[in-house]
Simulated scan of single mutants.
Amino acid sequence: MGFGERPALVVIDLARSWLDDESPQGSSRLEPVLHNTIELLQVARKHDCPVFFTTMAFTPWETVGPYGRKMLHLGERGSLEAGSKMVELDPRLERRPEEPLLVKPRASAFWGTPFDTYLIGRNIDTLIVTGCSTSGCIRATAESAHNLNFRTIVVREAVGDRSPMAHEVNLTDIDLRYADVVGLEETIAYLEGRATR
């Protein structure tokens, strides 16, 4: 698909629940993903590219039924409990007040949030996706963005998963079906080049 003219960057779920060794979900070993995302954030901010963040959080009434039973880890020591420290973004991301934080109840950043209206309101045509997890929230967000007719870019070095195999398999499938999986350097060059046009 290639890059368009009006990009936005979304950082998916780089919160304590996925990054903290004390998380009930277990360590994701996502430090390289976090650092590469921070590098992209610096470039995006320098060139006035809109930035969005997501986290996943639930109140008890949101986990009733089959979905809640499948997500058994939700109740473990506040892993994804609304208001808990675990759903807070990593402070190294340095989220700014003008950068929306979407609290999503499902894997896709679009499901149950106003994300699409925010993008449409800013005339965005290209969504650059970073964060975790490749096999879950990254894939779901890429699929939703594709279905909504956005050019969708997943940055290979800025996404990650607990399972290396799931990460690689899903990157291949995302690239075949929903998005362009692009390297960090190429994405930075696009953002820098766009600024000079």
Rank of each mutant, 00 (worst) to 15 (best):
I38Y: 11
V87A: 00
E62K: 11
A109C: 10
I124W: 09
E143Q: 13
L148M: 14
R96G: 01
M86R: 15
N149L: 11
A109K: 07
L14I: 11
L19N: 09
P32K: 09
R106T: 03
L148Y: 09
K46Y: 00
H47F: 15
T172C: 06
S28T: 11
K85C: 00
P50W: 06
V64W: 08
F150R: 09
E39V: 03
L171Q: 10
A140W: 02
I124S: 05
L9R: 10
R16C: 00
R69C: 01
K85Q: 05
G2P: 02
A140E: 03
D13Q: 11
L176S: 13
R95E: 04
S23C: 11
T130E: 08
T152R: 07
V182T: 15
G160K: 10
S79T: 10
D20L: 09
P114L: 12
L9V: 09
T37D: 04
E143T: 00
L191K: 12
M165A: 14
G75S: 13
L176M: 14
R151F: 02
K46C: 02
K104I: 05
T117R: 14
D180K: 13
N123A: 14
F52M: 13
R122H: 10
R106P: 04
S108E: 09
R162Q: 15
I153W: 01
L93E: 14
I128W: 06
H73Y: 14
P32T: 01
P24W: 07
V182H: 04
S133L: 12
M165Q: 15
N36I: 00
G65Q: 11
G136S: 12
E94H: 12
V51I: 13
W61R: 12
G26V: 05
A195V: 05
N149H: 12
P91I: 02
R156Y: 02
D161K: 11
H35C: 03
T126K: 06
L93P: 08
G131W: 06
V154S: 08
G112D: 15
L191C: 12
P91N: 08
R6P: 00
G75R: 13
P50C: 06
K70W: 12
M165F: 09
G183P: 12
P105C: 11
W18P: 00
L184T: 03
H47V: 04
N170H: 14
F53G: 02
S27L: 07
E168Q: 15
R77Y: 03
S108Q: 10
T134Q: 07
A195G: 13
R92M: 06
R96H: 10
S23L: 06
G65W: 07
W18L: 14
G136T: 05
A166W: 06
I128M: 10
R194H: 04
L9D: 04
M165S: 12
T55D: 08
P91Y: 07
P7L: 07
S84Q: 12
V10Q: 02
L40R: 11
P50L: 08
I188Q: 14
E62M: 13
K85R: 13
V181A: 07
V43T: 15
L89Q: 10
G83W: 04
T37A: 07
N147G: 01
L30D: 04
G26L: 11
A107F: 09
G183Y: 13
P66G: 00
L119Y: 08
D21V: 09
G68C: 10
N147T: 06
A109S: 14
R106C: 03
P114G: 13
E62G: 02
A44M: 05
E76H: 15
H146N: 14
V103K: 11
T113C: 09
V103H: 01
L171Y: 05
R6F: 00
C49M: 11
K46A: 14
